[in-house]
Every structure is written in structure tokens, then in C-alpha cells.
Computed example of a mutant assay.
Amino acid sequence: MREADGENDFVTIQIDESKAKTRLDKLICQELDLSRARVEALIDDGMVCLNGQVAVKASKKVQVGDVLEIELPEPESTDVLPEKMDLDIVYEDSDIIVINKQRGLVVHPAPGHYKGTLVNGLLYHCQDLSGINGVARPGIVHRIDKDTTGLLVVAKNDLAHESLAKQIMDKTCKREYLAIVHEPFSHRTGTIHAPIGRDEKDRQKMAVTSKNSRDAVTRFEVLENFDKFALVRCALDTGRTHQIRVHMAYIHHPVAADPKYGRRNTLPASGQLLHACHLELIHPRTGEKMAFDAEPDAEFNQYLNELRALKENQ
């Protein structure tokens, strides 16, 4: 049984025997005729509830008597317009485009912010972007924060989008970051396995929490130690919102200059010193394994060189 309200933005699905033992994400795809990527985004954003609790596992199989509630945000009527923009294009073909994103650039439009985003620039550069994520986020498979720099792959068509989204879910798409963090380490490597969900005290932030959270794993390697900071390389096994920033703060090594999760007494950079330095993927059409690398920007290197100089003079 399926019920929807008058504006069709809230759907209730009651599970009977014909739907039982079906994966949560697959069932929603079938019932609402949505793409897999769209359903994953709804689950990630906490828009799906199972028996009154926010659903966090797309793979969970539903049972007879379960009740699903799915909130479908109203589509934005505001047009996202192409804008001429200097883009650092690392690679491009008819299926994908890899961008080295600069600091301060928002990836996609959001309410109240429809200009000056990477999507606006991409629409000017190439009109053939996948439509899976709608008019506000065409082609966007994964995101990096406004003040995080580095590599981002964008899908030019739905075939590429579905393939890349699956690679991220299956953990075959590798993403690595460089970060300058507070406090030196006594060990060289580590793994942070701690669930991430919305901060109950501040809905604009994420936090390590057992409530309404999703599994999150970050592996890191310490590249250099300094007096009060360290340079680390982080690899994502999962892709939760603000994952590296939240996890590093959780182990008391917050990313330097992070205005949301960091310390007040930090390096005076214009934003968190976090850079997406390495990206590996399988080409959606050819099956070729591809790897891309990008050096940190001038601001990141400036503070890194200052820390190295201080260390040499000690």
C-alpha cells in the first residue's frame, strides 16, 4: 500500500508479503521510480524513515508490517544558469570530467546560493552533464567542501553517473586527502572507525554519534610531525559529510584552520587545510583503471613550508 499527501512530497509505504525481504534502496527505486543514486542521496540526507527511525542502511531488508516514510523535497524552480569560469581541468572526455577545485568554490547550488558554483561553471563549459541529481546538481557524483581543494570527478551522462556512484558505494573508487592537523602523532598509521550523523546540538554540523548515524571509516598515515602540527594523508573507505574533518577532530587532531570543527588558536589560513590529492576510478565506458594526482594550492604549501622551516630551525 502506498499513500502520498496532496503535494506529493511525503510518501508512506506499508510492507506486505509481496515487498518483504527486499533491500530498502531497491524497494524505494521500484516503488517511486527513482534512480539508485537519487535514493542513496535521500538516505544519506536522512529523508527515509523505517518504523519511525531514520534509516541508515540501504542494504537492510524490509519485513512484513514495516512502514517506510520517504520525504521528497520539492524541486527547486530557480534555474541554474551557465557562468564563464576558470576551471582547472585535469582530464576530460565524452563521459567524465576531472576537476582540481580551488578553495572557496561551492560545488553545487543550494537554496539562496545559485550563482558562482562549480556546477554553474561546468554548465558553461559543457552542457552534457548527467541529470540524475536534478537541475541543481547535474553530474555531481561526490562532493568536497567549499574550502577543501582538490580532485573531483563529474559525470557527463547517466551511464557514467551510475557507474561512478556504484564504484563509490563498492569502495572501488579511491579518494585520498592531504591535511595539516593539530598535534604531532606518536604512531605512523591509524584507522578511525566511528559512525557519523547530524550533531544533535547543532544541525549545521556532523558528529561522531550512535544516534541516526552511518558507518564511517577513515585510514590515515602520518607523513611529517612538527612541534604543534602534523601532515597526514587520509584515505576514505566511506564518504560521509565532513568525514575527515569530523574524524580528525574526534581523535583530538582537528584539521588546521577548520572554522567548524577546529580550534580557535590555529593557523591563519582562509579555510581548512585539506586537499583531495589523489583519485582512482574505473572508466565507466572503457573499463580502464585511471589515477589522478593534484598538488595542494599555494596557501596550503605556504603553511606547510613555514612549519618545515620552523622545524629545521629548532
Rank of each mutant, 00 (worst) to 15 (best):
I97F: 04
L118F: 14
F185D: 03
Y124V: 02
S94M: 07
H283Y: 03
S77A: 10
P268Q: 10
I244D: 04
A160M: 03
C49G: 02
N225Y: 13
R198H: 08
D16S: 07
C277N: 06
D79G: 00
K60R: 15
E299W: 08
V80M: 15
A207E: 03
T218M: 07
T149M: 09
S35G: 08
Q102T: 11
P75R: 14
S18R: 13
A249D: 13
Q30M: 00
A4H: 08
D5G: 04
Q314A: 01
D293W: 12
A291Q: 09
A155H: 09
R233L: 09
F220P: 04
V54R: 14
D199E: 12
P284A: 01
G139A: 02
D33H: 05
D79Y: 02
F300E: 00
L87D: 08
R263V: 03
G150T: 06
N133E: 05
E83N: 11
L231N: 12
I70G: 11
N301C: 09
Y250E: 13
Y91M: 11
L223R: 10
Y114Q: 09
I89F: 01
E40V: 03
Q14S: 12
A136L: 15
L267I: 05
F300N: 03
V153R: 01
K201L: 09
P254D: 13
L151Q: 11
V64H: 10
P195F: 13
T191P: 01
V67E: 11
D93H: 07
T172K: 04
C277W: 00
R188N: 00
G287R: 02
R203C: 00
V153L: 00
L281P: 00
V80Y: 15
G65W: 05
D128C: 04
E40C: 02
L307P: 01
I43Y: 11
H275S: 04
A230Y: 02
D93Y: 07
Q63V: 02
K205Q: 10
T189C: 02
Y303N: 06
G116R: 15
F226G: 00
E31M: 08
V222R: 11
N225V: 10
M206C: 04
A249F: 07
P296T: 12
I251N: 12
P259N: 13
A179R: 04
V135E: 09
I97Q: 06
R245P: 10
E71H: 15
I244P: 04
T149V: 08
E280F: 02
G116M: 15
S270T: 14
I168N: 02
A269L: 11
Q204K: 13
N225C: 07
Q53C: 14
V80T: 14
G112C: 05
G6N: 15
M290D: 03
T191V: 12
L307Q: 04
A20S: 15
